[in-house]
Computed example of a mutant assay.
Amino acid sequence: MYILKSGIKKNPGRRWALPDRIFFGYGACHILAGAYLERPPLKNFYGERIVPFSEQPGNHIYVTDGVITFDYHGYSLRERLLSHHSRVWLTQRESWICEIVPVDFDLLSTTDLNERKMLGPDQYLHDAVPRARAFIERRDHAAAAAKARSKSQWVQVSKGS
């Protein structure tokens, strides 16, 4: 897991200067998910949110079709993303626990995001939506999703063995 140096998230210039994967993985995942859903490269995806209990850190938003997900890692199995996320946070905080909830608000609305203690796309040094769109457009979604989905079949076969 990548740990941001102290103060980066509070410094707009330093935050904006982060590489895309770190920028969208550590504080702007909701913008990436919102841009994906605004112009979906694949059908039947919706937003989900990892919400830690007791005001603990570890909130994360991604898009999924129920089997695979897309976030700053690219495409992966939903089960793997959730397992990895929980495992990492449990190494940081023994009592870390969360719930998975559907996103029921506009991921690109500053008002909706601010109500949930997240920055709106226009509250970064520059508008984060074009950056998210560019990140999304650099991928071959059909191939990457197929590759992730093929791992689902392998997991099912190995579980049945």
Rank of each mutant, 00 (worst) to 15 (best):
G13N: 15
D140P: 07
W96Y: 08
L18S: 13
A132M: 02
G58Q: 06
S95E: 14
Q92H: 11
G7D: 10
T91L: 10
R80N: 13
L90F: 01
V101L: 15
R93M: 13
Y36R: 07
V51M: 12
V67D: 14
D104H: 05
E79D: 13
L4R: 06
E115H: 07
G7V: 05
V155L: 14
Y26Q: 15
W96G: 03
E99K: 14
V157H: 11
F105G: 04
H85A: 03
S83V: 01
I31L: 08
K9Q: 15
A17D: 15
R139W: 08
A142H: 06
G74H: 04
F45L: 11
K151T: 09
K43C: 09
T91F: 01
G66Y: 04
S150F: 03
L125H: 05
L77V: 03
S83Y: 10
Y2Q: 09
Y2M: 10
V129R: 14
F105S: 06
K159R: 15
S6P: 05
P19S: 08
C29G: 07
K9P: 07
A132V: 00
G25F: 06
D112N: 09
G47A: 09
L125T: 00
A28D: 09
N59F: 09
Y2D: 08
V88M: 14
A146D: 14
H60N: 11
S161R: 14
R131S: 02
D140H: 11
I100E: 10
L125K: 12
V103C: 11
K151V: 12
A128N: 02
P121T: 01
I50L: 13
H141P: 01
L37A: 14
I31H: 02
D20N: 14
Q153P: 00
W96T: 02
D122V: 05
I3P: 01
D104N: 15
P41G: 08
L119Q: 07
E48S: 07
A17C: 07
S150M: 08
F135A: 03
G120K: 04
A17N: 15
A143P: 01
H85V: 06
P19N: 12
V129C: 03
Y62M: 10
F53W: 12
S83I: 00
H30R: 02
D20V: 01
G34C: 08
A148W: 02
P40F: 05
E137H: 05
S83C: 05
P12G: 08
P41N: 07
V155Y: 13
L42H: 06
A28F: 04
A145E: 13
F53R: 13
Q123Y: 01
D106H: 11
R14H: 12
L113N: 02
N44V: 01
F23D: 10
R149A: 15
G47S: 12
R138Q: 15
A134G: 01
F24E: 06
L37K: 08
Q123C: 07
A134W: 00
A148V: 07
R139F: 05
V155H: 09
W89T: 00
L108E: 01
H85K: 10
G13Q: 15
I8K: 10
G120Y: 03
R80Y: 10
R93K: 12
R14V: 02
H60I: 02
R21V: 13
L81C: 04
G47C: 11
N11W: 04
L108S: 01
V88Y: 11
S54N: 15
A28N: 09
I3N: 09
R15S: 06
V67M: 11
L77I: 01
T64G: 10
H30G: 05
F23G: 07
P41C: 07
L108G: 03
R87K: 11
